[in-house]
Each structure stands twice: as C-alpha cells, then as structure tokens.
Design a protein around this nucleic acid. Structure first.
Length: 576
RNA sequence: UGGGGCGUCGUCAAGCGGUAAGACACAAGGUUUUGGUCCUUGCAUUCGCGGGUUCGAAUCCUGCCGCCCCAACCA
C-alpha cells in the first residue's frame, strides 16, 4: 500500500473486466486503423507546459493518451511544451515527471521538449518566409490587436505584409541574434486577414523574448508561439493522434495549415475532448498558483489541492485516480463531475485494502468500575473484514479507556444507539459495557463515563442474545499513542466557487482543515511508516503524511470520511 | 450580429433508424461486532423546444432556443 512515490508501475490500464471502451476518440482511431492510415500505428503524447503542477484534470488527459496508446499496442511520449520561458521552470518539469510516473503512464525513453526542436522550427520559419507565407511585422502589440479586426469585422493587412522575403529573412535572423528589443518585431504567417476564424488572421509565429530558457539558456532571443511549435513537434515525433482540449478546436485549421505548408515528416491528426472540471474546487493553473502564492494553502502539494501531488499527500492512490478517469469517460460536452465520484473511487479501493485500526479523535474517558485495576488483556482484532487474509492483531484492553466524545450523549435522541446513561454498547472486539454514571466538571461537562462490563461478553459477543445496537472503537488510556491528525475537507464551501462571476477566494471553505494534535490511537499505530494507509474504524481512511511524519510520530491525513448515515439522519432532523 | 463546438436522469455518460446501458448521487428494505461494506428494489413513457420524413426517430431533415470557445507578442 505504500506506493507514495514508487508509482503504479508501467502498466496496463486497470483491467476492470469492462467491455472494450468505445468513446468517440477510440472510434476515430479504429477508423484510421481500418483505413490503413499511419501504417497501423497509434502514437500519442502528453504535452504539459512546465508552468505549474499537474492536477486531476491532467490525470484525465494523461490516462486518455496513455490508455489509448496501450490499447492499440502503440507508444506514448511525454513532451514539455516549453515555448514560454518567462513562465516555465525546471521545478515544474520535475514535478510533472514524478506525477506522470506515479500515475503509471510510461514514456520509456521518449521524454521530449519543444525546445529540442527550436533549430528545426526556426528553419521551418525561414522556409515559410522564402515561400512568401510569412513575414516580419513591425506592428506593436496594440496595433496588431486593432488591425486584427473583430469577430464580425475583417482585419486589415499589416503594412509589412508584402515585405520582400529577403528582407524578412534578414530581420528574422537579427531578431534571433538579439539585435532588437522585445516587441519590436514579430514573425507572422501570411494567411488571411479576413478569415472568419480569428486564429487564421496572420497569426504570430515568433516573438522576441530576451530571457534565458531553462533548457536552452541564452541561445535564443526569439521563441515560437504555441501554434507554431505544437503541431510541428507532433509531426517530428510521429504522433498519430494529437489529443487536446476543446478550446483548441479553433486552432485546428491553423494546426493543419502548418502541417500542409511545411515539409514535415508526418501528418498528425488533432482531436479535441472536454477537459475535466470538478465541483468544490478550481482547476486552472493560474488560480491554483494564486492559492499557493497567497498562502491560502500550504503549497502545491497541500492535501486540499486538486493537484496530483496534493491528492497523493491526501492519501489517494494511482489506481483510484485511474479508475476515476475511466469512470468519467471522454466526450466533447462541457461538464463538471461531482466530487463525490472522485471520493467514491478512493473509498472503493481503501474499503477493500485498508487495515482497520482504532483511533479516538476527541477522547472521553471511560472507566469500567468492575474491571480489575492493573489488568491488561490482549484483545484479538480482525484487521479487515473485507479481506480474510488480512489476519489479526492484539490490542491491549484495560480498566481505563478512551472513547469518542461523539459516542456518548447524556440526553440522547431516541434513535441514538451509542452510549447513554443506562444504555449498553459493544466495545469493538472486547466487551459489552453499560453506562452507570457520569462525572462532570465544574462547568457541567461530562468528563468521564463510568460503566460496568459483562465478563461473559468476551470478544464483544452477546452472551444471552440480547440486542446491543451500538459498537464503539476505543483505546486503552495507559497504552494509547498520541498523534497528530489532520481532518481535511473540501477546499471550497460551494460546488461552483466561481458561479455568477464570484471571486473564488470568497468561497474558500474556512473549515477545510482541522488539526487535532492529541488524538489517541492504538499502540501499534505510533510506529507506522510514512505512506501507511488505514481505516480509523468508524471515522474514515487515513494516510501517514510522507512529509511531516517523523519516526515514532506519524501525522495522519484524513483521505476520506466514511459514509455517515447517522449524521445525515440527524441533520435531517429525524433522529427523534 | 462572424466562425467553431455542444445540448440524453441531480452529476458524468452509453446509444449512430427498431422502440432509453452503466456509474456516482438520492430513496426504501435486508444482512452486519464499523449507523462502514455488501445485497435487493426504486429512480428519464423520455432524449433543449417545435415542425417534418418514416410502419417506426434520442438517432435522418428543418426552424428555433440555450450554453461554451475564438479578437494574449499564454498554452
């Protein structure tokens, strides 16, 4: 279970016994295969820009590309779209590789960078100029915008549109050498200033940026724009199906224009699908960056973040994320998936895999008055009712225990079947105990419940078959380990943090994190290694934080709660 | 008002002319030493709306309505 950073391993899309998937992308691929295109190859790629950490939305894209390549016996590349050095950084490159590997997508030795192709791209730019299909433009940023026209009005030609090729070539070369300041010139394709698709109105190919690049250093003073770099990079790598999100649909004609007008070695096909959106969070890298920069969270890997590093730290597994991506499907419809589906994906796995242990978050002392003082009994506890092979463990039981404050109520509603005065409950795996008395502090708060136990109920059985409705987890006061527990909840308090043009920061959930520094857990848990996953019985699934846990002092992050139908009942006002 | 997309259950999503899969959510029962899990059952006579074609349409045609994307020297 401790696969925190080892990754899922190359692997196969989770064999789920599912029928063959047949979304519209796979249909296209089958069509291409049937038509004998691409020599029967299928080659995809995941092309992140290294300007932020990957999030769950990227996981969807990664899995679509990766599983597609695997299902058709093809290949999968990782390519960094690093054409904008101002925003990019090696820190991001490293985190991205870690995350993609963790998910189990294997690019083998095919880690590429658009920057690997800068020389080729430059040569192709010169080619277009020579062909009279590109020119160096001297309009400034604002002029370019104005001259481009609007969606309903045609744009007008740049005064440099007919600049002789030789002159453009010379200017381009000088741009490259760094003879001009940023913004002085741009290289533009000569297409159609009246084109109904704005992207086709003489788009920029290169802009001057006199900043060093994290990989090419100060070699370049000009950098290619996304449109000029992306498709050609696909072509160079022999990508057969270039998958991207819906907003690039309007770029497709441009993508194809370059492919048609350049002597590229291959003609890839761009296919667009809807990106993933989730309720109760935000997904844009810009907004996530803002959360990090303004310290609304502790970093890109804060467990409340929808980043893969955040989810990993929360306790999610690669498998759960993969299953989630499968369930979400692929289509072209803008959609927002219910966060519950993600949560369900991790619960499903952990219910099957996670060992059950006992922990008390908010301790309330329980004394068994008829239990011998000083006696310690080792209670055999089943590790996982869902897994017969999980075995058992021994947990010490004594006269003084702690139970959850929530599990005792002096004035209990009718359907409350936990501990109450005069009531009897089962202490999981141990004995039946009956509440005889309570001890209160000066303020009238119950600080101790005094019970008697039934010695005949060893193991928690009911000796005479009497009905005992409640079963509580417990820890021995003398043996319990004290640990820090972090209870994470949704980052936002509303499903759509930006609905109605709202400032998403206004909708942050003030209770997204509750830190409990003195939770009590059964003794063995105090020595658990970082990355350990378990279920705190009746409370939820927990993960020993890989960053803040120390030897002998694990910090537990709540990965997910358990479904709580009592809470729902009570909230619904029906318990009485 | 130009161009490109999309509209099937609360949320995703199958369906591609033969009479609405599945998942999550929700609801009701059952099992249960986790008010967890599991099991059973229910949950779109209807596919944005209106016409048309057809023996038959969510699937074809047509008109309308709604939502998203495009006027960064971002990707």
């Amino acid at each position: 279970m401790n696969d925190d950073l080892k990754g899922a391993g190359p692997g196969a899309p989770d064999a789920d016994g599912d029928a063959e998937r047949n979304d519209f992308i796979r249909a296209f691929v089958r069509e291409d295969l049937a038509a004998g295109r691409n020599d029967g190859r299928v080659h995809t790629r995941f092309p992140p820009e290294p300007n932020g950490y990957l999030h769950i939305g990227h996981a969807k894209a990664i899995m679509i590309n990766w599983t597609l390549s695997q299902e058709f016996g093809g290949k999968f590349n990782l390519r960094f779209d690093d054409t904008n050095p101002e925003k990019e950084d090696v820190e991001y490159v490293e985190s991205i590789k870690t995350d993609v590997r963790w998910l189990g997508a294997d690019w083998e030795d095919r880690e590429f960078h658009a920057s690997d192709y800068f020389d080729q791209l430059y040569a192709w730019a010169q080619h277009l100029v020579r062909e009279g299909k590109a020119y160096v433009c001297s309009l400034d940023e604002e002029q370019i915008r104005e001259w481009r026209g609007t969606v309903t009005e045609a744009g007008k030609a740049s005064p440099d549109r007919e600049r002789p090729a030789a002159e453009s070539l010379d200017l381009l070369e000088r741009m490259r050498k760094g003879e001009f300041s940023e913004g002085k010139y741009t290289l533009r394709a000569k297409i159609d200033m009246a084109h109904p698709n704005m992207k086709m109105r003489d788009p920029l190919l290169y802009r001057i940026r006199r900043v060093p690049h994290h990989r090419t250093g100060d070699k370049w003073n000009i950098y290619p724009m996304y449109d000029f770099a992306h498709g050609q990079s696909d072509a160079i790598e022999g990508i057969t199906h270039s998958l991207c999100s819906l907003e690039f649909e309007v770029h497709r004609p441009l993508y194809e224009w370059f492919i048609e007008n350049l002597p590229v070695p291959y003609k890839p096909r761009q296919i667009e699908f809807a990106r993933l959106k989730l309720t109760y969070t935000v997904m844009s890298k810009r907004k996530l960056l803002q959360l990090v920069k303004n310290n609304h969270v502790a970093g890109w890997d804060d467990p409340r973040m929808p980043t893969l590093s955040g989810l990993r730290r929360l306790g999610y597994t690669p498998t759960a994320i993969r299953r989630f991506a499968e369930r979400v499907g692929v289509a072209k419809r803008d959609s927002t998936v219910d966060l519950d589906l993600l949560k369900w994906s991790i619960r499903e796995e952990l219910n099957r895999e996670a060992p059950r242990v006992m922990a008390v978050l908010r301790p309330l002392k329980l004394v068994i008055t008829n239990y011998p003082e000083g006696q310690v009994e080792n209670i055999t506890c089943e590790n996982n009712p869902e897994d017969p092979n999980a075995g058992t463990r021994e947990v010490p039981f004594t006269r003084e225990l702690y139970i959850e404050q929530d599990d005792f109520r002096e004035d209990a509603p009718r359907k409350y079947f936990r501990l109450k005065p005069g009531g009897e409950v089962r202490l999981k795996h141990a004995y039946l105990v009956k509440c005889e008395d309570v001890v209160k502090d000066a303020a009238g708060n119950v600080v101790e419940v005094r019970c008697t136990y039934d010695p005949e109920s060893h193991g928690g059985s009911s000796p005479d078959g009497r009905k005992v409705q409640g079963t509580l987890q417990w820890v021995s006061a003398a043996h319990a380990a004290r640990v820090e527990v972090r209870l994470y909840d949704n980052l936002f308090r509303v499903p759509f943090p930006e609905e109605g043009g709202a400032d998403f920061l206004e909708n942050l959930n003030p209770d997204s994190l509750e830190v409990i520094t003195d939770a009590l857990v059964e003794p063995g848990l105090g020595q658990v290694a970082p990355g350990y996953r378990c279920q705190f019985m009746r409370l939820g699934y927990f993960f020993a934080d890989p960053v803040d846990s120390k030897p002998g002092a694990p910090v537990f992050n709540r990965t997910a709660t358990l479904k709580d139908s009592w809470a729902k009942l009570e909230a619904g006002g029906k318990p009485e």
